[in-house]
């Protein structure tokens, strides 16, 4: 009887741990055949989408304006340092005004939705869409209209960056502890980061690095540097090391 109880407990613990292991499986994808030799292209860096806040006891995201402002400043500084090591010329996109600002905002938002789909339906093997399962496939696009965000520049590619950090509230942390006692998996805090390179001729996503468990506290300069290094890990044409890739 004690042995059966022990087996049951082990099974429960595995059930708690396994979903998180599954989420961590893959985080980088590259379009088959895509290579970006150093000094061959101009990359337009789009202003990152950043949102920081707390995760309530029930798991709702509660944005925090101060934390978000700190993170924007820290990530911008870290990106300025990192862009010199990307292997190709990087130009920073101007903040457009008028109708162009609307177009830019919509494409930045669309990138977040696209990258989220890649994470959920291709990187996470347990929920992969059958049409995305074929070996070596990485077929994602935001359409050729994305070239509009680079009008007037000589850019060949656009680099989109999106971050959302939810820091677990005290209530959420308590819930996590009590849930663990009942062998139920509850996450406290979620730190999602996505960086994607888009071919401006076709709109195809040629490289994506995305993870729902990013490191680095973006509210501090050091944490933001760590986050940006993780986001640009394995960036095509750069000397940054490659991370786990799509199989």
């Amino acid at each position: 009887m004690p042995l059966r109880l022990c087996t049951l407990r082990c099974a429960c613990i595995l059930l708690v741990i396994l979903p998180q292991v599954a989420w961590a499986q893959e985080r980088t994808g590259t379009k088959p055949g895509f290579v970006l030799p150093p000094r061959s292209a101009t990359i337009l860096l789009i202003r990152p989408t950043i949102s920081v806040g707390a995760q309530s006891t029930g798991g709702m995201f509660e944005p925090d304006a101060d934390w978000t402002a700190q993170a924007r400043e820290n990530i911008a500084a870290a990106l300025t340092l990192a862009q010199t090591r990307l292997g190709n010329q990087v130009i920073v996109a101007d903040e457009p005004v008028g109708p162009a600002a609307q177009v830019m905002a919509e494409y930045r938002a669309l990138f977040s939705v696209l990258a989220d789909s890649v994470m959920r339906y291709q990187f996470f093997a347990g929920n992969r869409l059958p049409s995305k399962k074929r070996k070596g496939q990485f077929d994602w696009t935001m359409g050729p209209g994305v070239a509009e965000v680079a009008r007037g520049t000589r850019a060949n590619y656009a680099l989109f960056v999106s971050n959302q950090d939810q820091f677990g509230s005290t209530g959420r942390k308590f819930l996590q502890v009590f849930a663990a006692m009942a062998y139920v998996s509850v996450k406290s805090g979620e730190h999602t980061g996505m960086a994607g390179l888009v071919d401006l001729r076709t709109g195809d996503l040629v490289w994506l690095n995305a993870d729902m468990a990013m490191g680095g506290d973006v509210r501090t300069p050091e944490g933001a540097k760590k986050r940006v290094a993780q986001l640009l890990e394995g960036f095509p044409g750069s000397a940054m090391p490659a991370s786990q890739t799509v199989k």
């Binding site: 979903p19 006891t57 029930g58 798991g59 339906y121 347990g126 929920n127 992969r128 869409l129 059958p130 049409s131 819930l175 009590f178 849930a179 009942a182 139920v184 998996s185 509850v186 996450k187």
Partner: peptide, 18 residues
């Protein structure tokens, strides 16, 4: 507490099919 626990627990995913 049980209600929050159930809501917060990671949902089991049903398989997607072609």
């Amino acid at each position: 507490f049980c209600a929050i626990l159930l809501a917060a627990a990671q949902p089991a995913l049903a398989a997607n099919t072609l």
